[in-house]
Amino acid sequence: MSHNINGKAAGKFAAVEQEFAKNFAERGEVGASVCVSVGGETVVDLWGGTADPATETPWERDTVSIVFSCTKAATALCAHILVDCGLLKLHAPVSEYWPEFAKNGKELTTVQMMLNHESAIPAQREPIRPGGFLDWDYMIQRMEDEEAFWEPGTRNGYHMVNFGWTVGELVRRVSGKSLGTFFRDEVASLLSAEFWIGIPDDFSQPIAPIIPFVPDPKMELSPFTKKLLTEPQSIQALSFLNNGGWTPNDPEAHKAEIGGAGGIANARGQVAMYEPLANGGSINGVTLVSAARLAEMGKVSTATQIDATLLAPTRFASGFMKSMDNRAYPGGDQMSAVLGEAAFGHVGAGGSIGFADPDHDLAFSYTMNKMGAGLLLNDRGQSLIDATYAALRA
């Protein structure tokens, strides 16, 4: 299978290209893209491999793929834009904007708790109806009706897909636009970013099918995976498996606005979104957020020793993941994403990631079609990040 790596890696960033090639040669990569911008200048823009092994279609410059939970950062950014405008208050009760949510133990939930994965509905107990994830109104009613799993604000538990509806509905209620439309109008279009939360009917770019991860029977299972496999009513199983049959390669799912897991992008598209956040809030005359809001966005807002969903230590800014180094724990290499201390962004299932690091004016993204082990990064994405930081230090 040809790797056909294309694009550029400038000067001292050649090591990123070497690791990208090594991902194909040694780490099982099938098709992928990586992009790095420093100070608004693109220093790495690479793509290669096979987008669809069934047809041997190569991964082209404009190939995109599902980026799973990387979408949460796009959803969070929409909320922060509204906070910056004074239309959404972080410490206000959600009931101020969405009264129907405030019931079944969720009455005291604040906007900040929703961004922190503390709003206490990481999953649904009752089965999602077939196709439910594709129906916004249905899922919003499910958010409203679900009983809190804990007292909101008292603990943190990753809202694996629900984050897109809890935070996304706030965006819709406050802005009057659907989440995908708001993101398109206020972020993607302004930055010419190849990133969509729900693609339009006339979408023509090639979408690489996701290739599921097949675990090695000898592989050490994380606590999350053990619970998922053995306790069907656990938060782990319900958050991951109770999805109404949603699959990432369903063309109808690509059109749905699934703000927690359904975004479609490539590395260049994600970097375009993060470039303003790496450079004071503005890039090329486009301001997404003020410098003051940006400074708050990158701060740790919640951290826990045992996340109620992921069953590992986690650190979040308001809607964004921070560096999480859990390599000292059993199976911790599958539960880590090691970034700069100022960096904030989000991983996606299987190992994709996008983030900004304002300390280095850095915007970084890696996307791929072959999922890897774990819930955060695997050795493919981490090797590219490590090479990028090494180049910045050189």
Rank of each mutant, 00 (worst) to 15 (best):
S239I: 02
A102P: 01
S119P: 09
P232C: 01
T247F: 09
P276L: 06
T57C: 02
F344W: 01
L46E: 11
T247W: 11
E341R: 10
V214P: 14
S318L: 05
V67T: 12
G28N: 02
M324Y: 08
F344M: 00
R327L: 06
E41S: 15
I385L: 07
W246K: 15
G168P: 04
C35M: 13
T287V: 11
V94E: 00
E41C: 11
G86I: 07
V83Q: 05
E231N: 12
V161N: 06
F13H: 11
Q270P: 06
L241S: 11
G153R: 05
H159E: 08
A76D: 07
P152E: 03
A278F: 01
N284S: 10
E60L: 15
L87V: 05
T247Y: 08
N326R: 04
L46I: 09
E100A: 15
V30W: 05
A295K: 00
M297W: 00
A73V: 13
H360E: 14
K255S: 07
G198D: 00
D52Y: 13
L376H: 11
G164F: 14
A343N: 04
E19H: 12
A188W: 13
S383W: 02
A261K: 14
G244K: 09
K89T: 02
L376E: 01
S37Y: 10
N279Q: 07
I121F: 03
V64D: 09
L339I: 08
E252R: 13
R155W: 05
F20D: 02
P217V: 02
A253N: 09
L134Q: 02
L108I: 12
F203C: 00
S175P: 13
L90S: 10
A79L: 11
M143P: 05
G345P: 04
E186C: 08
D250V: 06
Q112C: 07
N23L: 14
L115W: 08
Q334T: 07
A267G: 05
G157N: 04
N156W: 06
L362I: 03
G372W: 02
E41A: 15
A356P: 02
G157K: 05
